[in-house]
Amino acid sequence: MLVYEKVSFGSECNNRCMTCPSARQQETPRLNELVAQIDALKNGENLELFGGEPTLHEDLVSLISYARKRGARRIKLVTNGRRLADADFLFHLVEEGCRIFEVKIYGSRPETHDAVTCVRGSLDETLRGLQNLGGISDSGGHEGDIYVGIRFGVTNTNLEDLVPAVAFLMSFSIDAISFVRMGGDFPIVQAARMVANAMKVATLNRIWSMCEGFPPCVMKGSETHLSELLQPVAFENDKPKSCLRCVFAKICTGPHGDYAGKGLRDFKAVSASPYSKDMEYLLKMRSIHAKQ
């Protein structure tokens, strides 16, 4: 819902995820280049630090401090969480003003998570990071001051682990979970069913959940959780012609490009939806986001 302006830390990472979108090697920016990115932002109010693994950058704390002094009001760190296993390091980040964390996870077990990250022991470190985030949010003068979102990468290897993973993650202090479809090499309809079940478990446990990369036609009954409807994006992917008849035609972005060519027959126009009467406001939401 909040729109963040992005600050890229390049592609250096301590995981080697098979699904990583930034497989292309980018140089790690120096502090002055990161500062320049911040200076060039339109608003500089909401910052998302991403790319590779920002926590590996030696100037991360200084940059957060700089962003805050420059007027940033919300600083979100997109991270694999491994370095947050170092409680002192995490404390520094929080003290400097980083209060919003999005931690990337691929499973509840090393067999699923580490298999994607290609680093043995990475899940263990990430979970220790999550534990530390919970510890900070429960004490240390920051009660309720930390927001922890989980960015759960959905791949062809962890579909069976989605529900157990959500149940497992409930023991950590998390505020929301996003299920993000990574790659197009698995049937979207089957994955959608698994994601919908996992989101139901989250809802039952009073945790807000969303999913990305799943059009409304494959997520009937879970439309309220579709990230593309709640945080409308400007781009649109290839869609079958039949999609023009869909009640969501004006708002659906279609499947991601990496899937489109493989299974357009998976997508069927939705002829009626209890949400069609809300279309006017979904479009208005898109226009609000577009202006930001």
Binding site: M1, L2, R68, A72, R73, R74, I75, G97, R99, I100, G144, D145, I146, Y147, G149, D175, A176, W208
Partner: peptide, 12 residues
């Protein structure tokens, strides 16, 4: 709304 307002209200 609880999740998004928590994130919003964490403004520095």
């Amino acid at each position: 709304s609880s999740a998004v307002t928590k994130e919003y209200n964490l403004a520095l």
